[in-house]
Amino acid sequence: MLHLTAAAEPRNHVDPARTAETRAWINAPGSNAPYGIPVTALGPPDAAGRMPMRDFTGLPALRPPAKWFERHVQLALLWTSHDRRQDWLRAGQALQYVLLTATARGLRTSPLHQAMEWPDLRSAMALPRHKRCHPQMLIRFGYGPDGSRTPRASRQTVTHPARPSAALAETR
């Protein structure tokens, strides 16, 4: 699964449309944008190079310094028995529960979704013994330092946005 995830990362970087979309998610330091991921919230790459973490910037200058991850990684594959809209919703609800439970227990999580974005890699991620395994998300669990806080949108921004978010309008 990690090899498939690692194979997806360079694909994302050579596709100009994907690179532009991913960079649009990132807010530069000092930005007042109501939505997006602050550069300061991005996680570090694995110093050993075993864990294929998502590089949202594609720019070494914006990447946080590498850190050593656990020697024995713990992974979970969130999958559904079908691949319909209601299954995507259930997978999202399960992911929410897993992430909140992990946080409450002091675990850090990293969604490794790169392979899920490419149909051939997502298919290869399916569990071989299960005929009905539709992978939805690969999650890394581990321990580490607290991440930096991320800003929260104001109530005014959330209840009366100036323009609808493209992410909310997008369908799978």
Rank of each mutant, 00 (worst) to 15 (best):
Leu75Gly: 03
Leu78Thr: 04
Val73Thr: 06
Phe56Pro: 02
Gln74Pro: 02
Ala76Arg: 11
Trp68Val: 06
Ser81His: 15
Gln114Met: 05
Ala94Tyr: 05
Gln93Lys: 08
Gly106His: 12
Val98Leu: 10
Met125Asp: 00
Pro52Phe: 00
Arg108Glu: 12
Arg105Trp: 08
Met125Ala: 05
Leu107Asp: 01
Trp118Pro: 00
Arg105Cys: 07
Ser81Met: 15
Leu78Tyr: 13
Asp83Lys: 01
Leu99Cys: 09
Ser110Trp: 14
Ala104Leu: 08
Leu77Thr: 05
Ser110Ile: 10
Pro52Met: 03
Pro64Ile: 05
Pro60Met: 00
Leu59Ile: 12
Pro128Lys: 10
Pro111Thr: 05
Thr80Ile: 04
Ala102Asp: 12
Val98Arg: 01
Glu117His: 12
Phe56Glu: 10
Leu127Ser: 08
Leu89Gly: 04
Glu70Gly: 04
Met53Phe: 14
Gln96Asp: 12
Ala66Trp: 09
Val73Pro: 00
Leu127Tyr: 13
Arg54Val: 06
Gln114Val: 01
Leu78Lys: 03
Phe69Tyr: 14
His82Arg: 15
Thr109Met: 02
Arg85Trp: 14
Pro60Gln: 01
Arg54Pro: 14
Ala104Asn: 09
Ser110Met: 14
Pro52Lys: 01
Leu100Met: 10
Leu127Trp: 15
Thr80Leu: 06
Ala61Trp: 15
Gln74Ala: 06
Gly92Val: 08
Pro119Trp: 01
Leu112Thr: 01
Phe69Asn: 00
Tyr97Arg: 08
Gln86Glu: 14
Gly106Cys: 05
Leu121Pro: 00
Leu78Ile: 10
Thr103Gln: 12
Pro128Gly: 02
Glu70Asp: 15
Ala102Pro: 06
Leu77Phe: 06
Thr57Gly: 11
Ala91Phe: 14
Pro119Asn: 02
Glu117Phe: 11
Glu117Arg: 10
Leu95Tyr: 02
Leu75Met: 09
Leu100Ala: 11
Leu89Trp: 11
Pro65Gly: 10
His72Leu: 07
Arg90Phe: 08
Leu89Val: 11
Leu99Lys: 06
Val98Thr: 09
Tyr97Gln: 11
Gln86Asn: 13
Ala61Asp: 15
Asp87Cys: 13
Gly58Ser: 14
Thr101Gly: 05
Trp88Lys: 13
Thr57Glu: 05
Ala102Leu: 05
Leu75Asp: 05
Pro52Cys: 04
Trp79Gln: 00
Ala66Ile: 09
Asp120Thr: 11
Ala94Asp: 02
Trp118Phe: 15
Pro119Ile: 00
Gln74Arg: 12
Tyr97Ile: 07
Leu62Val: 06
Pro119Leu: 03
Thr103Trp: 09
Arg90Ile: 05
Ala124Phe: 08
Thr80Asn: 13
Thr101Ala: 09
Gly58Cys: 14
Ala104Pro: 03
Thr109Ile: 07
Asp83Leu: 00
Leu95Ser: 04
Leu100Gly: 12
Arg71Met: 10
Asp83Gly: 03
Met116Tyr: 07
